[in-house]
Write a protein that binds this DNA or RNA. Structure first.
Length: 513
RNA sequence: GGUCCGUUCGUCUAGGGGUUAGGACGUAUCCCUUUCACGGAUAAAACACGGGUUCGAUUCCCGUACGGACUACCA
């Protein structure tokens, strides 16, 4: 009964993995590692029509980015290879045949048109749930209704057919979900799901159950959208004789749109002004770009942390968790039951927290990237002082540049609001004197600059606070920023005086007071 | 429509038969800072509704409402 823990993340390579899928992967990973088990990546590419090139690589890259290390997968290999269902195609048929031979499945020859007609007919007759089931299969073309020799003749002639599961007419199907407890459904509400498609590929249901069994999966953690078909999977385990190897199920609450309702979807991406994908994705067919958290400036640790908290919490007041801490604290019991709206503001808060945790050296590399892009070179020791000064005010790496632009180039314009309110005759006077006083200042240090400014203001009989804003405007061109004397120290004596004199020349007094 | 799942501040949530229903994000105000931000403090803000069960229900049960998922030879 105590099998080694194995979980799998089993996405379909139909496009970029969205953030909800990434959370599913993360929860799988956390549980596996918590229990000392293994994490498997399995690519469920049984639908050839929806295959999108690059999607598998995208998934692998996304998982790696947030720090999920796979024990087995298409790239990693492993004892259950191959890990792409398309490459396992040959394995599924025998199990479908086993079901047919034991009377739990049957061949069906109905064309799409016939299926549509059946549904229309049922709808017209106001049948509650029109589907291919224990009663309607009696009226369709399948191995249950057709004479044996005709069935054989059809198959031998190569006519297309599917294999459907024969759902019992009356049976209570129950399954225990780790998150929701016992879920019961009556088999009469289930339909005879297709197990093998006419192209020879299995459907999700068969492939998923077969592979989970073959790969000895112990816990199936997946989105709530699978809950309705979970009873079908239970039936499959039963008919295949694998009941004792049936994994435990946990169906995760869905990630919802932040506004209004509905599940967060790939579409919501850029429309909402924030990413819903881990990393950027370019659609290979249309060329459309979907933006990712990574490129938006999110740190992987931050994404991991807030993703973990979307539907789970440790029950304590700690909110900042490293991956190792998450693994330590994670339990399925503490996963919530209800859908979770995605909150971008909180995501930003997490990122800010993680920015603060970075060393100045790391922060400096972020700023340096932006500087390189703008062809500005700054010495590292100065860069470190700059990021130290700026880091309280940034959420994303790119903010360093936005926040501190004026440190690297002279103001091209002055904030007119601040100018009209604060650039007074009085201010001009003090700044002019201050500029002269600065000439003699050596060393050019923040504390000395501050003292000099206060003295200058005092001599002019002006309160320093009255003209400080004007001074800031002269130096930076804007009305807000970090400690001004520190800013001036960083700028250096010559540059500071130049800017002061520049402002004195350009700015016109328009303020009254 | 049918089946299943869900419902505590705007959002993420803690809690659980008797609590001033706690925290975080966001918002507002104040303090700090002669700016903004950070930080600190404070505030506004929730048990969907109706019936039971009970001495007592936000908590347990049943309904209702609302929301969601599923209802394909897609996963």
């Amino acid at each position: 009964m105590n099998r080694p823990v194995k979980v799998r993340f089993a996405p379909s390579p139909t496009g970029p993995l969205h953030i909800g899928g990434l959370r599913t992967a993360l929860y799988n990973y956390l549980l596996a590692k918590k229990l000392g088990g293994q994490m498997i990546l399995r690519i469920e590419d049984t639908d050839q029509n929806r295959f999108v090139p690059g999607a598998e690589e995208y998934i692998a890259e996304s998982l790696a980015w947030i720090g999920i290390k796979l024990d087995q997968g298409p790239k990693e290999g492993g004892p259950y290879a191959p890990y792409r269902q398309s490459e396992r195609k040959a394995m599924y048929f025998q199990y479908a045949m086993q079901l047919v031979n034991e009377g739990h499945a049957y061949y069906a020859f109905d064309t799409p048109e016939e299926l549509d007609a059946m549904r229309e007919r049922l709808k017209a007759a106001r049948v509650q749930n029109p589907q291919y089931n224990s009663v309607t299969r009696e009226t369709m073309k399948n191995s249950l209704t057709l004479p044996e020799d005709e069935v054989k003749a059809r198959i031998d002639s190569g006519a297309p057919y599917v294999i459907r599961l024969k759902i019992p007419r009356k049976e209570e199907v129950r399954l225990k979900d780790l998150i929701r407890g016992w879920v019961m459904v009556h088999s009469s509400t289930l339909d005879d799901k297709v197990l093998m498609k006419s192209d020879g590929m299995p459907t999700y249901h068969l492939a998923n159950v077969v592979d989970d069994y073959l790969m000895e999966i112990t816990h199936v953690i997946r989105g709530e959208e699978w809950l309705p078909s979970a009873p079908l999977h239970v039936l499959l385990y039963k008919y295949l004789g694998w009941e004792d190897k049936m994994p435990q199920f946990a169906h995760l609450p869905l990630l919802l749109k932040p506004d209004g309702n509905g599940k967060l979807s790939k579409r919501d991406g850029d429309q909402l002004g924030f990413p819903v994908f881990p990393v950027d994705w370019i659609d290979p067919f249309t060329g459309d770009k979907s933006s990712g958290f990574r490129e938006r400036g999110f740190l992987p640790e931050a994404v991991t942390n807030f993703l973990a908290f979307l539907g789970w919490n440790p029950g304590t007041e700690q909110e900042l968790f490293t991956m190792d801490e998450l693994i330590e604290a994670f339990t399925v019991e503490r996963i919530g039951k209800s859908g979770t709206k995605f909150d971008f503001a909180k995501a930003k808060w997490f990122n800010h927290q993680y920015m603060l945790k970075q060393s100045n050296e790391t922060l400096w590399t972020y700023l340096k990237n932006e500087l390189d892009r703008n062809q500005i070179s700054v010495q590292q020791d100065k860069g470190l002082r700059i990021v130290e000064m700026l880091k309280e005010r940034v959420t994303f790496p790119a903010d360093f540049w936005v926040e501190g632009k004026y440190l690297f180039s002279r103001p091209e314009a002055y904030d007119s609001q601040v100018a009209s309110a604060k650039w007074t005759e009085e201010a001009r006077l003090v700044i002019n004197e201050f500029s002269k006083a600065l000439q003699k200042l050596d060393p050019f240090m923040a504390t000395e600059i501050k003292r000099t400014f206060e003295e200058t203001a005092h001599t002019a009989q002006v309160k320093p606070g009255k003209v400080l804003q004007a001074l800031r405007l002269a130096v930076t061109g804007v009305g807000a920023g970090p400690d001004l004397t520190l800013t001036m120290e960083l700028l250096g004596k010559e540059e500071t005086i130049h800017r002061l004199n520049n402002a004195l020349e350009i700015l016109v007094v328009s303020a009254n007071v």
